[in-house]
Design a protein around this nucleic acid. Structure first.
Lengths: 200, 200
DNA sequence: TGACAATGTTACCGATCGGTACGTACCCTG
DNA sequence: CAGGGTACGTACCGATCGGTAACATTGTCA
């Protein structure tokens, strides 16, 4: 193999990236901030500086674009969920609390828009909708991960504790939007700590 | 005042009630089950068996109809929130747990659609939207009511406990939709109990 | 009977919705 | 330089959105 084609110029870098990528980024931003139903494809392509056919060449439909956005959101979510764990090796409780502490701050500050996946379930209650399915799958995975961590903590009833913590998590996501600065999510850390300690 | 007009025939009863009332009922049902953005005015009037002009004679706009729906939802919510308290006079903890027990069952059974007010905040993140405002006001009142109850319990930090409980509540609303039957809301009672007991 | 309020009927508005048929500029390869 | 694919834009589609104008019909009360 003498010289492989080598992607056009810079695969990353700045400049006019592929239309599909610009659409993905713009859609992610708009869907998250305003809601999926609130944003039309017209606005996405306008803000992305592309045209509608480009969108429909890369994505089957708006619904599929939304599902794609959520799949990506899911990936980034679990990255940020696991990231703080690095500072607490072999300490599931410390790992979880580290994430919760970060969330607590974000979710009780102004302009917070909650979890894109949770929001999607509410926007699309229909179980058959692609966006709904992606979001629910992600939440099931989160529940399982929490159970795992609770087992690691040595909880008396790990599944029950995991569910309690999941309620606190989801509560923080939605309350963050409702109350903004100084909202109830600021109590997330303390509540989680108490709940965990009372369950070991 | 000899005899005041006296409402037409039966203020309640069956039969062809006023168009505005039929619209209200139908909109409440559809908005709650499918979401506000998902339902068009056309569908509301069709299902209510009335016509569009009737809707716009009784309501300024769809947004105002939505706000009206939420105001009514708020009223009925606080009724159902306070109702179970009757069995536990002078016992704030028992009162709250009684409601939570009921919610726990409903929110972990199939087809649950959460809290209409919470859903509205997510559907309309714009603070200026009438629906958003009604919902946020209602949630603020709920937070205040919870603080009151936590003071009544003699909590060390009533505001913090109230926020923790609010997170559990909101978490149940949204998780109910995500997980359906057997969802994490079934752990609501146990979690609340532990949180309260660890905060007195 | 006659007046009034409430509702229905029909037809329409401009804007926006999600989605597409079709033409064109570009770049790599031969 | 020819050809062909890739990537994109122009212009448009029918359907539905929220909302309204003008007028006919009904039921209730005085």
């Amino acid at each position: 193999m003498s010289k492989r084609p080598e992607p056009p110029i810079a695969p990353s870098a700045e400049a006019p990236r592929r239309a599909a990528d610009r659409i993905r980024d713009t859609a992610a931003e708009l869907f998250y901030r305003e809601g999926i139903r609130a944003i039309g494809v017209e606005e996405i392509v306008n803000r992305a500086g592309v045209t509608k056919p480009s969108l429909y060449r890369a994505f089957e439909s708006k619904d599929e674009l939304a599902a794609d956005y959520l799949r990506d959101y899911d990936r980034r979510f679990f990255l940020s969920f696991e990231a703080p764990a690095a500072d607490h090796p072999g300490d599931p409780k410390g790992q979880l609390l580290a994430y919760l502490e970060i969330l607590s701050v974000r979710a009780s500050s102004d302009g917070y828009r909650g979890c894109g996946l949770t929001n999607a379930v509410i926007e699309y209650p229909d179980r058959d909708h692609p966006a709904h399915q992606v979001a629910v799958d992600s939440k099931r995975a989160l529940r399982e991960r929490l159970r795992e961590m609770c087992r690691g903590m040595g909880a008396r009833d790990p599944d029950e504790l995991a569910d309690g913590l999941l309620l606190l998590l989801e509560g923080s996501y939605v309350s963050g939007q409702t109350f903004g600065e100084g909202g109830p999510a600021r109590a997330l850390g303390a509540a989680a700590r108490r709940l965990i300690d009372a369950s070991l």
